[in-house]
Design a binder for these strands. Structure first.
Lengths: 143, 143
DNA sequence: TTTTATGCAAAAGATTTGCACAGTA
DNA sequence: TACTGTGCAAATCTTTTGCATAAAA
């Protein structure tokens, strides 16, 4: 399964690539290179630069989606047909996936208005999650 | 006018802060710290770290909006009531502002579904601008 | 055997920080 | 004068790169 993904993109099948794909396939949320790296090295030896190189390659081939988040880190996720955006708590970093991507209609308009070919978009909401806002109001009441 | 903005946020009025605000007020597009810095130093002496510190402070106070873009750089713009999103060409970096922000309805739904307080969002479209796509097809036809 | 992937260490780029001095209120 | 802002240089953090070696086709 994974092997085919790699072969199909003219990439050699290696332990490290398989391991990185396995980690991302089992993750519900996008992960940073560091996060992916530190999980993978539980199973196979690998250098951090290989993690970066592999993630870069897989993103170029369209196997992964690469996204710079407002927290300054780069997140990677499987490029499944149905991509997801997220709502991130600026206090505790808890993250909620957003089910439907509402941008396709908007993109159609943009194409007509600007003549651009649109190849992607990034969308991220930030806010305060219920737990954190509870805690802050607790604190406010010295409770 | 600017002086009031600074006083209102308990910030001292300095030449450098005024200069940075002036640059951003006269810019139709968000700018990076480097871009702002290199314009400002035409008028007043200033170090790059002051530029970063000032931009950070003004963003914290809500006078500026700070945004990490998919190109890996951080962009700043005046926090006017009506913020803008952009469509950026991945080849030549030309940028088109998008007039209306279509996310408020979506945010309302999210608030109900997740219980988050939503404090902001980032949205950026990427694509190929008409010029660049013309050039690439020219190249394709060896023209 | 030829091509591609990897490790290691060093480099790069953007941003932040410590500390002494200068400027504003 | 008291407090805040600024310059400079060094530090930090994430990501990239050069080059020699190892692994895949």
């Amino acid at each position: 399964m994974d092997k085919n993904v790699l072969k199909f993109s003219d990439l050699k099948t290696t332990k490290r690539r398989m391991a990185i794909l396995a980690v991302l396939e089992n993750s519900a949320l996008p992960m940073t290179a560091e996060e992916i790296y530190s999980r993978v090295i539980n199973d196979v030896h690998m250098s951090l630069s290989t993690a970066y190189r592999t993630l870069g390659t897989l993103s170029e081939k369209g196997i992964l989606l690469k996204n710079l988040s407002q927290d300054g880190k780069t997140y990677y996720q499987m490029n499944s047909h149905q991509h997801k955006h997220h709502l991130v708590c600026t206090l505790c970093n808890s993250t909620v996936p957003i089910d439907d991507c509402p941008l396709s209609k908007i993109e159609e308009n943009l194409i007509q208005q600007t003549g651009f070919t649109i190849t992607g978009h990034s969308l991220e909401f930030s806010g305060i999650c219920p737990k954190c806002s509870k805690h802050s109001s607790d604190a406010g009441f010295n409770d």
